[in-house]
């Protein structure tokens, strides 16, 4: 079997034109998803059942079903209803771009919320007690003690989730979006050279993964800088 290097050299710039779409999907849904995750988290730790239960059910549903099914429900499924096609959300839901962002944000929100909850549960009890002994109110303790420590504890899992999200953006190609994966699929459909194109794309995705992991690794060291003095 012969590797067609000229095809690799041709196809990499073509696929990189989809990089901006891949990154847009990643950053916008990571941002919206994290906001959603914080809301879900606050609902879960609120201690009020009418806020807790909807959050638990939401997380259970979105973590229990494949992201591809969620994308299909939003993109193919929602236009079944007349009231959605006449609603103000239709300009977003009509476009595959809006649907992909919506699906990815809703999905990652459920996962990130669990990650943040894990971070909060990891904050030692003694610190709370120390905070209340110093006369800090519940709100002050949450903002100045729990949050910074929980964020630091949650970084490794959060970085894994961002990598998963980056991998999930490739599924946007199933709803006609031309991200890197979508472009690669059209090139393969034209040339029928899956090895050259897909392996080059795999290398691009691996570089992205590496960049994400390195950045979060740096951020984690930055957040834990006060710990080094003890060691």
């Amino acid at each position: 079997m012969i590797v067609d290097f000229s095809l690799i050299i041709d196809s990499i710039p073509k696929m990189l034109t989809g990089l901006s779409l891949t990154l847009q999907l990643l950053f916008v849904s990571a941002f919206l998803g994290t906001i959603l995750a914080i809301i879900l988290l606050l609902m879960r730790i609120s201690g009020r059942w009418y806020l807790q239960w909807p959050a638990v059910v939401y997380i259970y549903i979105f973590r229990g079903t494949p992201i591809l099914v969620q994308i299909f429900i939003i993109y193919h499924g929602l236009p079944q209803f007349e009231f959605i096609r006449t609603s103000i959300f239709w300009p977003i839901l009509r476009e595959p771009y809006g649907c992909a962002i919506l699906a990815l944000s809703l999905n990652t929100g459920a996962y990130v919320s669990e990650i943040l909850r894990g971070g909060i549960l990891g904050v030692p009890r003694g610190l709370h007690e120390a905070g209340s002994a110093l006369g800090l109110s519940v709100r002050q303790r949450f903002i100045y003690i729990t949050t910074p420590i929980a964020v630091r504890l949650a970084i490794p899992a959060y970085s894994n989730d961002i990598v998963s999200l980056m991998k999930a953006t490739a599924l946007a190609s199933t709803i006609t979006l031309l991200d890197m994966m979508g472009i690669a699929r059209t090139i393969v459909a034209d040339t029928f050279a899956p090895y050259e194109v897909f392996i080059s794309l795999a290398v691009i995705y691996m570089i992205l993964t590496l960049i994400i992991q390195k950045s979060f690794g740096w951020f984690e060291r930055y957040m834990s800088r006060y710990l080094k003095k003890e060691a």
């Binding site: 999930a168 699929r185 794309l201 795999a202």
Partner: peptide, 19 residues
Amino acid sequence: RGVPEILVLLLLYFGAAIA
């Protein structure tokens, strides 16, 4: 762990078919 699942599947499927 760094490559999307869909890419792995497409590569294996078309790659194996061609091979």
